[in-house]
């Protein structure tokens, strides 16, 4: 069993049930068929893809809602800060005042086993990068800005991102192409969102999370408390100075 599968939080209530996997593929395929020209998609006929060797999982209860990951993502990729260009979206529900833990929605790309963005791209811009661990990426040079990948993404909110300045789509590449990030990205690397998360609410894993629903990605990332020799769990020591008043 994959590490991420083992650590699925017991009793956690998913914020919303998402339509994913085969059912979503069928639904999206039906939608795609209504789009003029979609029948000619070269990628649409492809039945399966090699799985990505890297996935970003998260713990929505640990997330502070600080959106550091969103800023880091846009800065690392574009050298500018723009959360709307971030390939990971964190929605903090203030001012809707939804109760914890449903007040934060974490929306990183799932690197889907069946990537509908890839499957439905008419030009092959959205593709599986077999040279870099099968990460699902979009080649901006091939993107014609048809927005089909935006429409096909089965997640809410969608994980494919529109760049209005270039009139092209983008998506998470696990920081394979980050000219403003000093560290190495990719499936075995350090994506800017994960490394820059102060809450340690994001994690890069190699095993494919369960695809059925959101719980496969929204996992328990709370580190286990160290055990005392007696076997008792100690009370966490105060690591910080006394709080400022």
């Amino acid at each position: 069993m994959a590490e991420s599968e083992k650590s699925v939080t017991q009793g956690k209530v998913p914020r919303r049930k998402f339509l994913v996997g085969g059912g979503a593929a069928l639904a999206a395929g039906a939608f795609a068929a209504q789009i003029p020209g979609s029948a000619a998609q070269p990628a649409a006929a492809k039945a399966s893809y090699p799985s990505s060797t890297g996935y970003i999982v998260y713990d929505s209860r640990l997330c502070w809602g600080c959106q550091s990951c969103m800023f880091n993502c846009s800065v690392a990729h574009y050298g500018e800060s723009n959360p709307s260009l971030s390939r990971i979206q964190i929605i903090r529900d203030a001012p809707s005042f939804t109760k914890y833990p449903l007040d934060v929605v974490m929306a990183p790309c799932r690197q889907c086993v069946t990537p509908l963005c890839v499957q439905n791209c008419p030009t092959g811009a959205a593709h599986v990068d077999t040279e870099h661990g099968n990460v699902r990426v979009i080649d901006e040079g091939k993107c014609i800005g048809c927005k089909r990948c935006l429409q096909m993404c089965p997640q809410n909110p969608r994980r494919t991102v529109w760049n209005p300045y270039k009139k092209k789509s983008t998506k998470c590449d696990l920081c394979l192409d980050t000219p403003f990030w000093s560290r190495e990205g990719g499936p075995g690397g350090e994506p800017a969102c994960v490394t820059g998360c102060p809450a340690k609410a994001l994690k890069l894993v190699r095993e494919t999370p369960p695809q059925e629903d959101v719980a496969g990605y929204d996992v328990n990332l709370v580190p286990p408390r160290p055990k005392m020799p007696s076997g008792k769990t100690p009370t966490p020591a105060a690591k910080q100075p006394a709080p400022k008043s």
Partner: peptide, 20 residues
Amino acid sequence: APASAGSGSCHPCLRADRRR
């Protein structure tokens, strides 16, 4: 502390003084 469920922060911060 980090990795403490239910913490929160301002936008964007490295301190978790807020609570969710």
